[in-house]
């Protein structure tokens, strides 16, 4: 065997070692969900067992997870759509007119600790009788999705060649048309990317729902957290519920992998 071949084998051994930690945790999560309650508290932990789908059934039938999944989906979708609708023009303007003060404002929004939003919003929504409504949750989720979409889209709009827009202006287009007809179609990829990232962050958001949601609008992170507070901790149920709520975002991440990596690095590298 020659030297390059040995290097190659060593490289792939290293690669396997480096991808085991992420894979293992997800595999273990699924396995916990497939074991019975008794199997889950056995030590040493069982690696080979006869899988059961009972936990998954219970999560949907006894714990009403379909409703929580729907709630999370509604909130994440609306928060993302509203953020796109008002965030795209803002990002475009910031990118084109180099409005550094505004982008600084966006940064402040991203730095502010989430806990600081809870008290004022709780008090206002209670006065307005809006606790446990979609209005309250979608409004607070804008705190996360709007700055994120603007932040990412500034980088994407800066990548649209200004020459194209100038040519359109000379041809008699007005500015708002260049935005709709040139900048938006050319940054289609960026828009999809930031929409996906925004959806994932809204789906995963825990704190706002913990305080502002109730039986009617409970989202999946709170629903899975509540598995711990039923007196006895139901490990098997947690495994199944965690698998169910992580699954949609992983599917998203899987199909949009290249786009997410591009979005994150673009946002990061442009700083």
């Amino acid at each position: 065997m020659n030297k390059t071949k040995i290097y190659k084998i060593l490289f792939y051994i290293g690669m396997i070692i480096l991808i085991i930690p992420p894979i293992f945790v997800f595999a273990w999560m699924i396995m916990i969900g497939l074991k019975t309650g008794v199997q889950n508290i056995e030590y040493p932990p069982l690696f080979i067992f006869r899988p059961t789908l009972e936990n998954f059934k219970a999560v949907f039938q006894q714990h009403n997870f379909l409703k929580y999944l729907t709630n999370s989906f509604i909130i994440a979708t609306f928060a993302t759509l509203i953020s796109l609708f008002i965030g795209l023009p803002a990002a475009y303007s910031i990118a084109r007119y180099k409005q550094r003060n505004l982008s600084l404002g966006i940064l402040v929004a991203r730095m502010t600790p989430f806990v600081s939003y809870l008290l004022p919003w709780y008090i206002i929504f209670r006065k307005l009788n809006l606790i446990d409504t979609f209005t309250a949750l979608i409004t607070t989720h804008l705190i996360i999705t709007l700055p994120m979409i603007i932040w990412l889209m500034i980088a994407f709009f800066e990548g649209v060649p200004i020459e194209l827009e100038e040519a359109a202006l000379i041809d008699g287009c007005v500015r708002s048309e260049t935005f709709l007809r040139i900048a938006i179609p050319l940054s289609k990829n960026g828009i999809i990317t930031s929409a996906i990232i925004s959806f994932i962050f809204s789906w995963n958001q825990f704190l706002f729902s913990l305080i502002l949601s109730g039986p009617k609008t409970r989202t999946v992170p709170v629903a899975v957290y509540n598995f711990m507070s039923y007196g006895k901790i139901d490990w098997a149920g947690i495994g199944a519920a965690a698998t169910i709520i992580v699954f949609p975002v992983l599917v998203f991440a899987f199909f949009a992998k290249n786009k997410i990596v591009e979005g994150l690095t673009k946002g990061a590298l442009k700083g």
């Binding site: 690669m15 480096l18 991808i19 992420p22 894979i23 945790v25 997800f26 273990w28 999560m29 916990i32 994932i200 789906w203 995963n204 825990f206 999946v220 992170p221 709170v222 899975v224 957290y225 598995f227 711990m228 947690i238 495994g239 519920a241 965690a242 709520i245 992580v246 975002v249 992983l250 998203f252 991440a253 899987f254 992998k257 290249n258 997410i260 990596v261």
Partner: peptide
């Protein structure tokens, strides 16, 4: 490798923390 590496970032923190 890239696909696997995007998963921990995307996964819901509360669910992962419970595991």
């Amino acid at each position: 490798v890239q696909t696997i590496y995007i998963f921990p970032f995307a996964a819901t923190p509360v669910a992962i923390a419970l595991i």
